[in-house]
Amino acid sequence: MNGEQIHVLLVEDNEAHAELVLRSLREHRVANRIFHVSDGAEALDYLHNRGAYADRQAHPRPHMVLLDLRLPKVSGLEVLEQIKSDAGLSTIPVVILTTSQAEVDVASAYRCRANSYLVKPMDYEKFIQLMEELGYFWLGWNQFPWPPGAHPGPSGRLPHQG
């Protein structure tokens, strides 16, 4: 991990599940800042810096979105579709984190270009383990593309590569 600030947007309507995810990620220090919103409409507002999230400084573009599928108002799939069809947002990795194992959900998530599909484990130990490994993989090992408009520095390397 480098010195770059890593931001995660967690979209989860279930307060208890959100709490579980937040605590696990924080304990393993996989992200510097985790922003939590509890429905699809809020998630889109955040990503487009609209309404309550207009302040870009306080609500920076996330490096990854952790997205639940069953969300009030705007469903997880609709949020995913909007992210992937928006030129400015499409490169952000979106990891689906849901209770649903239904084939139809997995298939439609990948059809909408989800980067990964994870089912919340019932077992606490496994839940913690998944969060830890998720953090290491996506925020440690995984290489992020630079956002549009952000050009590589003179060295030709991405800013967060230092």
């Binding site: 279930n14 208890a16 599940h17 579980l20 069953r70 649903s100 239904a102 484990p121 019932m122 606490y124």
Partner: peptide, 21 residues
Amino acid sequence: TYTVSHDLKSPLITIRGFLGL
């Protein structure tokens, strides 16, 4: 069936998770 399996699973994850915590 889909909703029931999802909505019944959801509190179970909460219970197991918070028992761990």
